[in-house]
Amino acid sequence: MRFTHKTTKDTLTLSLTGELDHHGAAATRKAMDAVILEQQPKKVVLELKDVHFCDSSGLGLLMGRYKTALTVGAVLTVKEPSPPVARIMKLAGLDKLIKTERSVEV
């Protein structure tokens, strides 16, 4: 699990690549929080098109970053979730809490 970040105006975009499981989440969660807390954006976008595996530990990571974003007063959205991410978010009802952006509606 790797991530890159870029900032444009008030938006911080974190792009995740790899497998979002317990092992990957534990390794990246602190670094992601550090970027959010340092940049204090108004909007945090998690780009998840290149996440080719996601289990309930991945859900935990999404929920955790949602909370971190709230602590700096930012709104978190998910952009282009891959099929495994979209499926598990739907199962947990997380798609009702976190707004999802897609360039093509499905």
Binding site: A25, R29, D55, S56, S57, L59, G60, L61, M63, G64, I88, L91, A92
Partner: peptide, 14 residues
């Protein structure tokens, strides 16, 4: 404390 979603068994079942 561990940022768990509590959905593990639900995922297995589903």
């Amino acid at each position: 404390e561990g940022e768990r979603s509590g959905m593990g068994f639900t995922v297995m079942e589903s």
